[in-house]
């Protein structure tokens, strides 16, 4: 047989094996890897997507302890930034994707909305997934939001909780709690198909502001009702536009609308309210 043909056949066999290997490797990766990979990607995905949210009651039995994060070596080199890029080139420098932390942080936006961002360590997630064994490929990443108003939260005694599944590459989320004047904290972790929750990190606690006139009255300083009648318009949901709409903002915007050509907006204007 022609040597060239033999060579072609060998190459073909090699290609077939290579393809099979790749398919197999992909499967393995799907099984163990992708679950966390997407949480290391940096993404601007809008997180105010509609997610089905429902308050539940914390279930003590299903509550595992938070795995200990391995200690961070302080001498470990941090993300180094090329000196020349920062100092001498007009190019805008990039910020690091992460800081090697395993944490979730919770912030208040207004009486109804919270904002959370997180960074998770791959080694820590690995160790949890290893523990889960075969269940690892079924896990979902969720945010578990706890109502911890006026209690010392021990992980089991929240008034109620809310689970939010987070998706692809997301590293932050807006959480609608719709409850003024209450305290919340949030865990991020894995939820298995049998509803076991493995927390990876717990946030700080925050309190939403109140959104109405206080019921608390100081006997020495009984409020003058008339002063409140005139000013405050209670509303069922949302924030009363009449009370809260910033008049000055309004003015500026309508000026732009009907008095002006927006392209001539001065720099000073945009730096101010």
């Amino acid at each position: 047989m022609d040597k060239a043909i033999i060579k072609e056949i060998f190459l073909l066999i090699f290609e077939v094996f290579k393809a099979l290997y790749e398919i197999l490797w992909k499967k393995i990766k799907n099984l163990f890897g992708l679950t966390w990979d997407r949480f290391f990607g940096f993404s601007d995905v809008s997180s105010e997507q509609a997610t089905y949210q429902e308050w539940g009651v914390t279930d003590e039995d299903k509550w595992p302890s938070i795995p200990e994060a391995p200690p961070i070596n302080l001498e470990e080199p941090q993300q180094k930034i090329e000196r020349k890029e920062v100092a001498y080139l007009p190019k805008t420098p990039d910020l690091p994707d992460g800081y090697g932390d395993n944490r979730i942080v919770l912030m208040v936006r207004d009486p109804e909305w919270l904002f959370t961002y997180w960074e998770l360590r791959k080694d820590l997630m690995d160790s949890v997934l290893n523990t889960l064994g075969a269940m690892a490929h079924t896990v979902k990443i969720i945010l578990r939001v706890y109502d911890v108003t006026d209690i010392i939260f021990n992980g089991y005694n929240a008034h109620k909780h809310l689970d939010i599944q987070v998706t692809g590459g997301t590293r932050s989320w807006y959480i609608k709690v719709s409850e003024p004047n209450r305290s919340f904290c949030v865990d991020i972790g894995f939820l298995t198909f049998n509803d076991t929750f493995w927390a990876l990190s717990r946030s700080n606690a925050v309190r939403t502001p109140c959104m109405g006139v206080s019921d608390v009255v100081d006997e020495k300083w009984i409020g003058i009702e008339k002063l409140y009648e005139k000013l405050y318009v209670p509303v069922d949901t949302g924030i009363s536009e009449s009370v809260f709409e910033r008049a000055h903002r309004n003015w500026q915007e309508s000026l732009k609308e009907y008095v002006s050509s927006p392209e001539s907006l001065s720099g000073l204007a945009v730096s101010k309210k």
Binding site: M107, R109, R249, K273
Partner: peptide, 30 residues
Amino acid sequence: QVSTPSLSSWGYKGYSEYWLNESNDWIYRH
């Protein structure tokens, strides 16, 4: 009278939304 004011700002809607929304929330982790 002694009393504790509520969280508030003079920005749009009266709280922190103007400084914390999809256009700028990436800055806070840094």
